[in-house]
Design a binder for these strands. Structure first.
Lengths: 121, 121
DNA sequence: TTTACTGTATCGTCTGACGATGTATCGGCG
DNA sequence: CGCCGATACATCGTCAGACGATACAGTAAA
């Protein structure tokens, strides 16, 4: 595997990579599960095809943002085909930096009246 | 000019295109001014080179997201080389839809503890 | 049995990002 | 006045990444 190490101050993070980091932020997931999590969290707006998904996973492994996990769920829910992934420390830091960047963009959008002022979270 | 019409429900909006829409949301700006606005609003994190900037502008004109404006600033501040752009109605709707989408993503990031809870806007 | 879903993976194409380069004007400083 | 950095727009070529198509295979439901 070719290493392409990255640090959290570098911004070139593709939207797809950010979606995947977000999907893995609260739980280990396998490829297909990542796909479903993204689709659910974006209300179907973002759908990753297999090419996009597995291509991105491969790059993110090389970048050290995620790692494959050896842990398996209980045998009654497991599926041998699955490959589980989780965030590395670096992946989490990058995800946090990117989330803050997005939050800042949303603030700008609010200042520029692109969002209703009433939209609190 | 080739038309490639877009509607606000379609999500494929590149980050660069969103930055440009955001830069134009509160004022008409010329190309170089868009570049500076983006750099200022992102604290230097996002810097568009000329290839990215003018390439994106060309596409967004074709997509009907922005139009070139005939209005010029007062002669004392004008520069004949400048070409000014402003959002179309479609461009504004797309920008609002995208901003809401980003706001939703930020909420998810907050739920997943990627952002400090205290970060109010 | 046929369809839909789950699951991973690769390939080829095409779009867009981006630095390099080109051209030209403007303003300030020595 | 000459130089230089910033301003301003534009195109070109390269490369990374997005994405549909395709492949393979097992499972479950209709």
């Amino acid at each position: 595997m070719v290493k392409r190490l990255r640090d959290e101050s570098a911004q070139p993070l593709t939207p797809t990579a950010f979606y995947i980091l977000l999907a893995l932020a609260d739980a280990e997931r396998h490829g297909y599960g990542i796909m479903q999590e993204i689709e659910a969290r974006t209300a179907g707006r973002v759908k990753l095809g297999p090419g996009t998904l597995y291509g991105s996973i491969k790059r993110m492994l090389a970048d050290g943002l995620i790692v494959e996990s050896a842990e398996r769920p209980g045998p009654e829910t497991d599926d041998e085909r699955r490959r589980y992934y989780r965030l590395t420390n670096l992946g989490r830091r990058v995800a946090m930096a990117e989330a803050e960047f997005f939050a800042r963009l949303v603030e700008v959008a609010r200042e520029k009246k692109l969002l209703a002022d009433s939209e609190q979270h």
